Amino acid sequence: MYKTITAKYKDKDALTNVADELLNKDIPRENFFIDEKISQIKVMMPESAKQEIIDILNRHGPTEVH
């Protein structure tokens, strides 16, 4: 079963860094969406990868994760 996690950031550099790290962890590009206008990223992942994805998102200083 897949779950979606959304994180917001203060700047676009953080979004780029998160995307790079997700790709380096072999998360397919089609599993995450970046909205630069509101500095937000949404990641779809299996439940088994939830903690690893949350750790990645939190490493880049989100203002909000849900």
Rank of each mutant, 00 (worst) to 15 (best):
K25I: 05
K8E: 14
I53K: 07
Q51V: 13
P28W: 01
N17H: 03
E21K: 07
F32E: 06
A7V: 07
D35V: 13
Q51D: 15
N24I: 00
L23A: 04
T6S: 14
I54H: 04
D13R: 05
S39M: 11
Q40Y: 10
K25W: 06
T4E: 11
D20C: 02
K3E: 14
L15P: 09
K25S: 07
D55S: 05
E21N: 06
I54F: 09
L57Y: 01
L22T: 02
I56E: 06
I27V: 12
T16Y: 08
S39G: 09
K42M: 12
L57F: 04
V65F: 06
T63A: 10
I27P: 00
P46V: 10
L15N: 06
K25M: 05
I41R: 03
E30L: 07
D26M: 04
I56T: 03
D13E: 11
I54M: 06
K12Q: 15
E64G: 08
Q40V: 12
D55P: 01
E30P: 06
N58Y: 10
S39E: 13
H60N: 03
M45Y: 08
M45L: 10
T6F: 10
E21I: 03
I53V: 09
D13N: 12
M1F: 11
E30G: 04
D11S: 11
D20I: 01
S48Q: 14
Q40A: 13
M1W: 09
S48Y: 15
A19H: 06
D26L: 05
M45E: 08
V43N: 03
N31D: 05
M1Q: 11
K37E: 15
I54N: 05
D35P: 09
I53D: 04
N58W: 10
N58L: 10
L15W: 00
Y9W: 08
P28R: 00
H60Q: 08
D13C: 09
I38F: 12
D55Q: 07
S39H: 15
I5F: 09
I41D: 03
V18Y: 03
I53M: 09
I27D: 05
P28L: 01
A14N: 03
E47A: 08
D11F: 13
S39P: 05
E47H: 10
D11Y: 14
N31A: 03
K25R: 06
S39T: 15
D35E: 15
R29Q: 07
R29F: 08
S39R: 14
E21F: 01
A19R: 00
I53A: 07
L23D: 00
T4L: 11
N17P: 01
P46E: 14
M44G: 02
S48E: 15
Y9P: 00
D20H: 10
R29M: 08
L15I: 07
I27F: 04
D55R: 04
N31E: 00
Q51N: 13
L22P: 01
R59T: 02
L57M: 03
N24A: 09
K10Y: 11
R59I: 02
I53W: 06
K12E: 15
L57P: 02
D55N: 12
T63C: 09
K42C: 12
A7R: 06
E21G: 03
Q51C: 13
N31Y: 07
N24F: 00
E52S: 11
D20M: 03
A19L: 01
